[in-house]
């Protein structure tokens, strides 16, 4: 359910959680994105950090620079504002993926879990245009939704201590890309040669909340064509 007015929760004396709904849904997430972009554009003195997520926006602020009541007022005003400057359209990114084999060590397991072939898993995975619900977990990790029910798969029982950079994986109805090497428990279907986090680049990751992602399969020998 989308809330009519934002719900505020304190996370200590320097972070405020603004909740706009109580579930994962494209429309609630769109509202989070709108509020995030409006607040970002307003450059409110005292706000140090904005972290938009599925259904909430975390605002980290300096309590000596802005009072909590004033901060809540700005949020409420911007949330209700309907005639402001237009919100920019999200970007769309096509992402090449080498599926299976050493690039996607869990593809066969996922296929067996659903009693279908690995090729069918890939067909389902490349079908949707995914929405970026949030970036988190590690720098640049996009939480994408939603994976078709036919291949929705639980996390691995034992997470891997090392998931290679570029791994494309699923967990339940979410899919994501590991932009840096990290531990991880999602089922790895494939690997993309595109880079999703580079601290030396601007912006450091190509995706932001609300952007769209479409995966498409490539063969191993095509990898060099995609490495810039």
């Amino acid at each position: 359910m989308l809330y009519d007015i934002p719900t505020f929760r304190l996370m200590g004396d320097r972070a405020l959680l603004v909740e706009l709904g109580d579930e994962i849904s494209p429309s609630i997430n769109r509202k989070v994105r709108e509020l995030f972009l409006k607040l970002d554009r307003e450059s409110v003195h005292g706000i140090k950090e904005l972290v938009p997520a599925y259904r909430s926006l975390m605002i980290v602020y300096d309590p000596l620079a802005i009072l909590l009541t004033a901060l809540k007022e700005v949020v409420t005003r911007l949330h209700g504002e309907t005639h402001g400057p237009p919100i920019p359209e999200p970007k769309k990114l096509d992402v090449p993926v080498v599926y299976g084999g050493r690039f996607g060590p869990d593809l066969q397991w996922v296929a067996d879990f659903h009693g279908i072939s690995p090729e069918e898993v890939v067909r389902y995975h490349v079908q949707p245009v995914y929405q970026v619900y949030m970036i988190g977990f590690t720098p640049g990790f996009p939480y994408l939704g939603e994976v078709p029910d036919a291949i929705a798969t639980p996390r691995r029982e034992t997470p891997r201590t090392v998931v290679p950079q570029g791994s494309v994986a699923i967990a339940q109805r979410q899919t994501g890309i590991y932009p840096v090497q990290s531990p991880g428990g999602w089922q790895i279907l494939g690997w993309t040669p595109l880079r999703f986090f580079d601290a030396e680049n601007w912006p450091p990751t190509p995706l932001e909340i609300g952007d769209r992602v479409k995966f498409f399969p490539i063969r191993e020998k095509e990898i060099p064509d995609w490495q810039s």
Binding site: G12, A53, R55, S56, M58, G136, F137
Partner: peptide
């Protein structure tokens, strides 16, 4: 819960009931 931003000092309680004070290397 549905993933959300986290700030340093917040005390999360995973399923095993043992609290963890989050420091500065985690953002969600």
């Amino acid at each position: 819960i549905i993933s959300e931003g986290v700030a340093p000092g917040t005390i999360q309680v995973p399923g095993d009931g043992q609290p963890i004070i989050i420091l500065s290397e985690t953002i969600t």
